[in-house]
C-alpha cells in the first residue's frame, strides 16, 4: 500500500535493522533448510515473502531484492523500473513524471538511504533485472548464497589446517582431502 510504503522509507533505519536480523536467522537455519531441501521450501517462503513485502513495500517479487541498497523504497514501483536512481523527469515537489499523484520512488529511496546505516550502498551500480528470477524468493537466494560462502570459507580453513598439521586430521572432517591419513587415525598402529 502506498501509505505503508511511505512509512517504510521514513523508518528505513528500523527496517534495515530488522532485515539484518532476518538474514542472520535465515543463514543460521541453513542446515535445516538444506535437510528439508531448498526446492521444497521455495514456494512457501516465497508466499510469505510476497505477502509481507507486498504489504510493506508494494513489492513486485522481482526475485533480486534491492531494498537494502535503495533506502527501503522498492525500485520496481518506478513506472520505468529504474534500478539506479531517478530519471530526469521528476516533478516539482518530488512527484513522479509518469504518475504525478505518486512520489517518485527514487526521491523516497534517497530519503530512506540517508536514514540508514549503510545508506551509501545506494551508490552501487546495480545490474539490469534478470527476468528469469521473477516470482522467486529473494530472501532464500541471498541467505543461501551467504551460507554457502560461509561454509566454503570454513572448509577452506579446515583444509589448510589439515594440510599443515597431519596430526590435526582426527579433529577434522572427512572432507579435508589432501592430508595423508595418519595410520593411528585409521585404527592401525605402525608396523
Amino acid at each position: 500500500m502506498y501509505r505503508i510504503r511511505l512509512f517504510a522509507t521514513r523508518h528505513a533505519r528500523a527496517f534495515e535493522w530488522l532485515y539484518a536480523g532476518l538474514e542472520r536467522v535465515m543463514i543460521a537455519a541453513d542446515p535445516v533448510f538444506r535437510r528439508i531441501g531448498y526446492q521444497r521450501i521455495e514456494r512457501p517462503v516465497a508466499l510469505i515473502e510476497r505477502a509481507a513485502k507486498g504489504l510493506l513495500f508494494d513489492c513486485k517479487m522481482c526475485g533480486q531484492c534491492a531494498l537494502s541498497s535503495t533506502g527501503m523504497s522498492c525500485p520496481m514501483n518506478c513506472p520505468k523500473t529504474l534500478r539506479n536512481g531517478p530519471c530526469g523527469g521528476v516533478r516539482p515537489g518530488g512527484y513522479c513524471e509518469v504518475k504525478p499523484q505518486m512520489k517518485c520512488v527514487w526521491v523516497l529511496a534517497w530519503d530512506g538511504a540517508s536514514r540508514m546505516k549503510n545508506g551509501d550502498r545506494i551508490g552501487e551500480v546495480l545490474p539490469p533485472v534478470d527476468h528469469t528470477l521473477k516470482g522467486s524468493s529473494a530472501w532464500l537466494r541471498v541467505s543461501r548464497e551467504k551460507a554457502a560462502n560461509l561454509r566454503s570459507a570454513t572448509e577452506a580453513a579446515r583444509t589448510v589446517v589439515a594440510q599443515s598439521f597431519p596430526a590435526a586430521r582426527r579433529n577434522e572432517p572427512s572432507t579435508a582431502p589432501l592430508a595423508p591419513e595418519p595410520p593411528a587415525a585409521q585404527g592401525r598402529t605402525e608396523a
Binding site: 513506472p79 520505468k80 534500478r83 539506479n84 536512481g85 530519471c87 523527469g89 509518469v98 551500480v125
Partner: peptide, 28 residues
C-alpha cells in the same frame, strides 16, 4: 539515456520497455 515515459509522446499506448536504465546501459 533513460528516456521519457511513453505517455509523454504521440503514441501513449506503446509498451514501455526500460529493460536497462541509463546507468546499467552505460556499464554494459
Amino acid at each position: 539515456l533513460t528516456g521519457d515515459g511513453v505517455g509523454a509522446g504521440d503514441q501513449p499506448g506503446a509498451k514501455p520497455v526500460f529493460d536497462f536504465d541509463s546507468i546499467s546501459l552505460l556499464r554494459t
